[in-house]
């Protein structure tokens, strides 16, 4: 799939909570096809300490409006600069990058498990799955009620289950503590997950216990995003692989020390 470098204009910049925001971006040209799980490398201008592009998940794509949406966690100077962007400002993207989640066949039941900012790629995934006739259940793990992000949007494509660490909303605990994982409740054909590594490892093990395929979306420190610098490697059964080009979506069976 061909990659592009395009300038995008900020159409909307919306705060979700103190740590996260959603940027909706529109290019002057027509968007190229983007698949769920792919990411973009965003150049951050006007931030003295930000040298490299920021690899960010594609949260949503709207071909009719010709926009892409990024759900971003404020982590440092670069993402804080992006958080301050105003309507009409320009940001440069290299996209679409990486591989994508596999879409099963119509009638399948899919469980999408996201933790924290890891829910970002699961919205567009849910949208595409639902369009393909797949039953979508999203399990979202948030620190507190305040950090449950865009629940209404996820509900458009299927059922939404929630866990919070204090239990004030949804089930108390982490995503792996939800009753959906119990033998009598679990009726899925495939699991997709994105979030912190320990969470994804636990989810991948649960999926393995239920004998269903699982795909995990990794985040690694990255420079080029196109497979040239070899910085974002992950250990696999076939040696070191680049998260940017061989991933970010991997089968945990191929990752060393994951299952």
């Amino acid at each position: 799939m061909r990659k592009f470098i395009h300038d995008f204009h900020v159409v909307e910049n919306r705060d979700l909570n103190p740590g996260h925001f959603v940027l909706t971006l529109k290019p002057d040209v027509e968007l190229t096809p983007i698949f769920p799980g792919q990411f973009t490398e965003v150049r951050v201008d006007g931030s003295a300490n930000t040298f490299l592009r920021r690899p960010l998940s594609i949260h949503d794509v709207d071909y009719k409006a010709n926009t892409v949406t990024l759900l971003v966690q404020k982590k440092g100077d670069g993402t804080n600069r992006l958080a301050s962007m105003k309507y009409g400002e320009t940001v440069n993207l290299v996209y679409p990058l990486g591989n994508c989640f596999h879409i099963g066949s119509s009638g399948e039941r899919a469980l999408l498990v996201g933790g924290g900012c890891g829910v970002a790629p699961l919205l567009y995934l849910g949208k595409v799955l639902a369009k393909s006739g797949i039953h979508v259940t999203t399990l979202m793990g948030a620190r507190t009620e305040e950090y449950i992000m865009e629940a209404e949007l996820y509900k458009r494509y299927g059922e939404l289950l929630i866990t919070t660490e204090d239990g004030k909303a949804g089930t108390k605990g982490y995503v792996i503590h939800h009753e959906i994982w119990r033998e009598r409740n679990f009726s899925f054909d495939r699991v997709y997950t994105c979030g912190p590594d320990p969470m994804m490892k636990a989810v991948a093990r649960l999926a393995a216990r239920h004998h269903v395929p699982c795909e995990v979306s990794l985040e690694q420190t990255m420079a080029c995003g196109v497979g040239a610098c070899l910085c974002c490697v992950v250990e696999t059964n076939e040696g070191n692989k680049c998260t940017c080009t061989d991933g970010p979506v991997f089968d945990p069976n191929n990752l060393i020390n994951w299952l």
């Binding site: 003295a48 300490n49 930000t50 040298f51 490299l52 690694q220 420190t221 990255m222 420079a223 610098c229 070899l230 910085c231 974002c232 490697v233 992950v234 250990e235 040696g239 070191n240």
Partner: peptide
């Protein structure tokens, strides 16, 4: 011979630059 290079993490962003320790993968 084929080399796997150094373990992750291999990169650190710095002011106006970056450090790498890819190790000839």
């Amino acid at each position: 011979k084929l080399r796997q290079g150094n373990p992750y993490p291999r990169m650190a962003e710095t002011p106006m630059g970056m450090l790498n320790a890819v190790g000839l993968q």
